[in-house]
Amino acid sequence: MGRRSDHSRKELEELALSAAIQGVTAQGTQGLTIRGVAHAIGYSPGTLYNLFENRDELILRVAGRALDLLLQTLEAAEAKDKAIGLHGLCDQFIRFVETNGLLWEAVIAARAQRSDPAIWYWQKVMRIVEVNQRVLLRALPDLPAEVAMRSAITVALALNGLIATVDRQNLWTFAQSDLASMAHDLIDRYTAGLAAVGDGSQRPGQTQPGEQSHGAPAADAAHAVTTATDGPGDQ
């Protein structure tokens, strides 16, 4: 019999998330179920379905906590070393994923399972991107803010994609160097290109003034996320 009145809704959510995080940290996302989490905290599955719509939402909430931990790691590194650059943040990111690999799986799984996560989730992503943007602007202070934001998003996505690919050993047999070397090479080449472009002026293939774009600029999307009102999700 579930302990239906032992905890408030907020306390119960925290209990369930803590149990889910422990399960994912131990076994990854494959074995995570609402029933298993309910059993771990002594409540019925029906009670947890009043808190989480389904397993996908539970994974999304776990992923949100993983993003919180990564943000804390990056901000702590930035506070400790005011001169930290993208290479330093890259090292922090790689160490975080190496230490919390199974937990980071939730971020990959959440992205794959929900094409339009709640706005609170994207706000967490953008707070991490903003750390990259600040660091990038210290190295290249003449970059326009929107170029720096777009570049910070690009670097974050590229590094995460590289880590996810290597972690799953996809194409690993073709890799000629270790993960850190490839990641730092990516940063070197990308930032060298940014420095050469300078103010983000027209590049080949870029939409000309008056032409219709095939998608919203990254900076516009980032602004929409960071200025939106927090939803009822994991704050």
Score class of each variant (00 low, 15 high):
Leu74Ile: 08
Val107Trp: 00
Thr99Gln: 11
Arg65Ala: 03
Ala216Thr: 08
Gln22Gly: 15
Asn160Asp: 14
Leu32His: 13
Val97Gln: 14
Val129Ile: 15
Leu157Ile: 01
Asp56Phe: 04
Leu12Gln: 13
Ala152Lys: 10
Asp142Ser: 11
Arg95Phe: 02
Ala110Met: 07
Arg127Ser: 10
Ser44Met: 06
Leu179Glu: 10
Leu51His: 07
Glu146Leu: 01
His223Tyr: 05
Ala152Thr: 07
Asp68Arg: 04
Leu194Phe: 02
Asn170Cys: 11
Ala63Cys: 07
Thr207Pro: 12
Gln235Thr: 04
Val155Ile: 15
Pro144Ser: 09
Gly42Pro: 09
Ser151Gln: 05
Ala152Phe: 06
Lys10Gln: 15
Tyr190Gly: 11
Gly198Val: 09
Asp188His: 06
Thr154Cys: 01
Leu67Arg: 13
Val155Phe: 00
Gly28Gln: 05
Leu136Trp: 05
Gln92Leu: 02
Ser8Met: 08
Trp120Ala: 05
Ala40Ile: 01
Lys124Glu: 02
Ala164Val: 02
Ala106Trp: 09
Ala20Cys: 08
Phe93Thr: 14
Asp178Thr: 14
Asp91Pro: 02
Pro45His: 09
Ile187Trp: 01
Phe93Leu: 14
Ala79Ser: 10
Leu171Ala: 12
Gly161Asp: 03
Ala152Ile: 07
Arg55Pro: 12
His184Phe: 10
